[in-house]
């Protein structure tokens, strides 16, 4: 068997709770209770689960941003929390993130050009400015933004346009793994379709892998091969996406599948008209 690109083993992550007073005991809240997942090269894994169940926490741990209290995160065979700074920088070229809150993750003082080329500047020293600009134009085009966007600031964009800037930034180093936390939830369906299609194209072209977090089961079904369902910090079900959604085994997964709003179902409306 080929070596997995990402291997997360028994990861535990806890947060400190605010102390009611300085004399009270420090309490910890366990968010991830020893979770494990694997992604093969070129594969995409979806993570779905309730709000607050620990999806973004897992994403932050995988991105090397928050060290778990215990457990291991291996990317391309390397334990990312055991690397020194230079090796980590080399490794970082290979994985990029798209975060949940596009505004919070884009520095408002910088132009889109600066924001998008930042990973190249910090991770690929020695790339010329002209080459950088060419790549900025290329990724802007790929996410469907006009080339002139490069010289604008984040606040001059709509919510969905900002999210596309975040996606462009993640693509520019041609990483092999992209951790995408709700990457399309701020997008309208047409742009969403374009972005998802783009992500699929890139996957086929470059053999990219995705760790794809979304609460939209339609989106997850469209783009992932396998899905893992997280509930209260534990995975309750994992398997091929179609199988899990068509025939959910765990009660939480069943509730999730049943709660999807459907156009034309008129579910809530008929309830409303009754009372």
């Amino acid at each position: 068997m080929t070596q997995p690109l990402l291997k997360v083993t028994d990861v535990v992550r806890e947060y400190r709770l605010p102390r009611p007073s300085i004399f009270s005991k420090q309490e910890w809240l366990r968010i991830l209770h020893g979770v494990s997942i694997e992604i093969a090269p070129g594969e995409s894994l979806g993570i779905v689960g309730e709000s607050g169940s620990g999806k973004s926490t897992l994403a932050r741990a995988v991105m090397g941003l928050e060290r778990p209290q215990s457990g291991q995160i291996m990317i391309g065979g390397k334990d990312i929390y055991a690397l020194d700074r230079t090796s980590l920088r080399d490794a970082r070229k290979g994985f990029q993130a798209i975060f949940q809150d596009p505004y919070g993750s884009l520095d408002p003082r910088h132009t889109v050009r600066t924001i998008i080329s930042e990973p190249v500047v910090s991770l690929e020293r020695g790339v010329s400015a002209a080459e950088r600009n060419r790549r900025v134009a290329e990724v802007l085009d790929a996410v469907g933004l006009p080339a002139a966007s490069a010289d604008k600031y984040p606040h001059e964009f709509s919510g969905g346009q900002r999210q596309r800037v975040a996606i462009a930034r993640a693509l520019i180093t041609r990483p092999s793994l992209i951790v995408a936390d709700e990457p399309v939830s701020a997008l309208d369906v047409s742009i969403q379709a374009q972005v998802l299609n783009l992500m699929m194209d890139l996957q086929e072209k470059f053999g990219l892998s995705y760790l794809f977090i979304s609460h939209d089961l339609g989106v997850v079904r469209a783009i992932t091969d396998r899905v893992a369902v997280i509930h209260l910090g534990r995975f309750v079900e994992q398997g091929p996406t179609g199988e899990v959604f068509d025939n959910p085994q765990d009660p939480y997964t069943q509730a999730l599948v049943a709660a999807v709003p459907k156009p034309f179902s008129g579910r809530r409306k008929s309830k409303r008209q009754q009372n």
Binding site: G49, E50, S51, Q100, E182, H215, A255, L256, A259, P261
Partner: peptide, 9 residues
């Protein structure tokens, strides 16, 4: 947009 379907409901 940031909510899973059960919380959304």
């Amino acid at each position: 947009t940031a909510l899973d379907v059960t919380v959304q409901a």
